[in-house]
């Protein structure tokens, strides 16, 4: 890493430190009550003090998001494969996938809570939002295989299975990974939205439940602490999927080049 790169990487942290310092100073100098705006130091203190509650909530939310992402990946890729085999199926199914995508999940969640127990409803919500970008991107990837390469495989009488393994799957990988990154972020949003909708029904559940619970108690520092963990969870998911994408593509794909060299 060059000197310029290191500086660029540190820049956001410097901005964060500056903002936190200003916030801390404002809270102290202006003596803002903690139930209006707690100082960052108090939020950090709360994070440590309430760590058992908050980190077990983080674990619940992260687990739900990752389970949903896994299911969405399996379902999205499977459906993308089916659709790529038949234009007829694509025409029949895609409109519904789009309707699912454009309907705000926060409006669907209360209905799901009627039929499903809260933990299951949260999982389904997170799955529903993560599903479409994975399906759409995997479909696009499978459809954008170089025609000349398909002919090459035809020339050597490759079976459909060989075409999938040696050609279509690797060719679709960059698009699929882009979809996975979007889906990863959305699965967390879906999980949080459903937890909020579940409200008191989601007893002992994830971070969003802790946020609304602390809100009822006017425990503002804990709300901030839980919010910080939600952000951290999102960053973790994004970073992990970006690293995965880089790992898979760095050797050959344009999108992963330049950054690594």
């Amino acid at each position: 890493m060059t000197k310029g790169n290191a500086r660029d990487a540190l820049l956001p942290f410097a901005v964060l430190a500056g903002a936190l310092a200003a916030w801390e100073a404002a809270a102290r100098v202006l003596a803002i009550p903690t139930y209006v705006l707690p100082a960052p130091s108090l939020v950090a203190e709360t994070l440590v003090k309430d760590r058992e509650i908050l980190f077990s909530a983080l674990l619940v939310t992260l687990t739900t998001a990752l389970e949903a992402l896994t299911l969405a990946t399996i379902g999205g890729v499977a459906l993308a494969l089916l659709i790529s085999r038949s234009r007829w199926l694509e025409r029949a199914i895609m409109p519904f996938a789009i309707v699912l995508q454009v309907t705000p999940i926060i409006a669907v969640a209360p209905l799901l809570l009627v039929y499903l127990e809260p933990a299951r409803a949260v999982l389904v919500c997170a799955f529903l939002v993560a599903f479409f970008p994975i399906l759409a991107n995997a479909s696009l990837g499978l459809a954008s295989v170089d025609r000349a390469l398909v002919e090459l495989f035809d020339l050597y009488r490759a079976s459909p299975w060989q075409k999938l393994i040696f050609l279509r799957a690797p060719a679709a990988l960059p698009q699929f990974l882009a979809g996975l990154r979007i889906g990863g972020g959305l699965s967390l949003i879906g999980a949080i939205a459903a937890e909020l909708a579940a409200g008191a029904a989601g007893r002992g559940a994830g971070l969003a439940f802790r946020i609304s619970e602390a809100g009822y108690r006017l425990d503002i520092p804990r709300m901030f602490a839980a919010l910080a963990l939600v952000s951290a969870a999102g960053v973790m998911i994004y970073a992990a999927l970006t690293a995965l994408s880089h790992l898979c593509l760095r050797r050959w794909h344009e999108s992963a080049r330049g950054k690594s060299e």
Binding site: A148, L149, L152, L155, P170, W252, H253
Partner: peptide
């Protein structure tokens, strides 16, 4: 039969 296309058509990965 061997076939050489207009483009090299190599698998980039």
């Amino acid at each position: 039969i061997g076939f050489v296309f207009q483009e090299p058509t190599l698998l980039p990965w």
